[in-house]
Design a protein around this nucleic acid. Sequence first.
RNA 1: GUGGCUAUAGUUUAGUGGUAGAACAGCGGGUUGUGGUCCCGUUGGUGAGGGUUCGAUUCCCUCUAGCCACCCCA
Length: 449
Amino acid sequence: MPKKAEKQPKKIPKAPVLKIPQLLRGFKDILPAEQNFWRFICQTAENFSLGYGFSRIDPPILEEAGLFVRSIGKQTDIVEKEMFTFNDVAQGMVVLRPEATASIARAYISHGMFNLPQPVKLFYWGPMFRRERPQSGRQRQFYQFGFEILGEANPVVDAQLIAIVSNFFNQIGLDQISLQVNSIGCPDCRKNFIEELVNYYRAKRKMLCEDCKNRLTKNPLRLLDCKQPSCQFIKASAPQIVDWLCENCKTHFMKVAEYLDSLNIFYKLNPYLVRGLDYYTRTVFEVWPTEKEEGSQSVLGGGGRYDGLVELLGGRPTPAVGVSLGVERIILQLKQKEVAIPSKKAPDVFLAQIGDAAKIKAFNLYERLRQENILVAESFAKDSLKSQLDSANKLKVKYALILGQKEVMDGTILIREMESGVQEIIDFKKTVAELKKKLNHNNHQTPVV
RNA sequence: GUGGCUAUAGUUUAGUGGUAGAACAGCGGGUUGUGGUCCCGUUGGUGAGGGUUCGAUUCCCUCUAGCCACCCCA
C-alpha cells in the first residue's frame, strides 16, 4: 500500500522585491474580459467589408515621418505635437502611424493599384498612436478601422460610405448615433471662403476667446467649431461655407444628400463641421454618439473625401473618400447603452479524472474529443474531484465526464448532468457517441436565437 | 500642451501621526469519488522617490499614473 501523502498547504512563492514595470502613459492592456467587445466589433466590421466589396489591407505601423507631415498637414495638432517620432539610424525620422489613410494612399501608389479595376475599395483595422493627454476614450495607442474608396469621384460613393457607417452602427445596436455631414469644398472655393471668414472674424478680434485668436491665424476653419459661449453669437452670423462652394462642389454635395435621402438615411447638415486633417475636400462627416450638440462628446468616427491626397504623395490625380472609426469609443458607447453583445462560446463538457491510471486515460480521451470538435474543458493538474467539479461549475458546463479508478477497471465512464446532478454509467467506448447525442438533443431544446 | 480632482489587496472600499480592517474574487479544507448554498482557514495592500517627525499610509514637495474640462481628435 502506498503511503498516504501528507496534506500540506500549497506554498505560494513570495513576489521578489522588484519594481514592477508600469504601463506607459495612455497605453492599455486589452484584457480577456474585454475581448467579447473586440471580437464583436471586428467581426461585424469584417462582415461589412466583405458584404460591400472591400478588401482588407494592413499597412505597417511604422512609416517615414514625411508621409504624415505631407498628408495630414504640418500645421495640424496631430503632426505638430502628437506624433511618436524616432530617429532611426539608417532611415531617418520614422513615426508610429497616427492614422491609416495616408499609408493606404501610399500603398495605392506604390503598388500601382490604379491598374486594378477602379474604384479600389479597402478595409483596415489596427492600432494608431497619438501622444495626447489621456482620458476616457482617448489613449495614446487606440484602434481604428475604416473603409477607403480610391479612384472614384462620383458622389454616389460618398453616400455609400456614409450608408455603410449608418448601417454598421445600426447593426451593432447603437441606433442613437448622429451623422453630421458638411462640405468644405475644393481648395479653390475653400480659399475664398477662408478669406471671407478671416475678414469677418478679424473685425471682431477683440471679442474672441484666446483659442479663437489663435485659430484666426492657425486654423481659421476651426473658428466655426468654438464652444465658448462668448463666441457663439459671432459664429451665428459668420459666413457659411455652403454659400461659397463653387458650382461643381455644390452639385457634388447636393448629389450626396440626394443619394442619402434615397436610402432614408438620417443625417444632419452641419455647416460648422470641419475636420482636423488638411487632406479633406468636399464631403466631410462625423459620427456623434447622440444628437446633442452642446457639451463635449468624443466623436466615434469621421471621414470625408480626399481628392488631392494621392497626387500630393506623388501619385497621379486620384479622387478618393474614406472613413475611420474608433474602436475604444464604440465599446464605451456599447457599455454605456448596455447593448447586449454575443459572448465567447463556452465549453459544453468538463472532463474530470481521479487517480493516476484515470488521468492518463482521460488525458488521451481529451485529445479524442478535441478531434471530434467537442468543446471540452479540463484541469488535469488538479487531483481532487471536488476542485475539478468546482472548476466545471465555474465554467457553467452542461455535463461533466468523470473517470475514476473504478471506471477504468470496468471500462466505463460517468456522465453527470450538472444542473440536476443526475449521473449515468456508460460504456467508455461509447463516450463520443453518447456525448454527441446529448449535446445535439440539448441544442434542439434550446434553439439558437 | 493648459487647468482641476484623485491614488489603500486582483476588484470595490473603511480607517489612523504610533503594528492597515472588511466585502467580493483566489487558493485550501469541512472522511483523498461529487460542484453550486453554507461553515472554517489562508494568500495578498498604503503608486514611486524625497522631506518634516522619535515615528508618516496619514502632513509637505517632486515624479508617475488615472479621471474631468479645454485644446484636438478616433
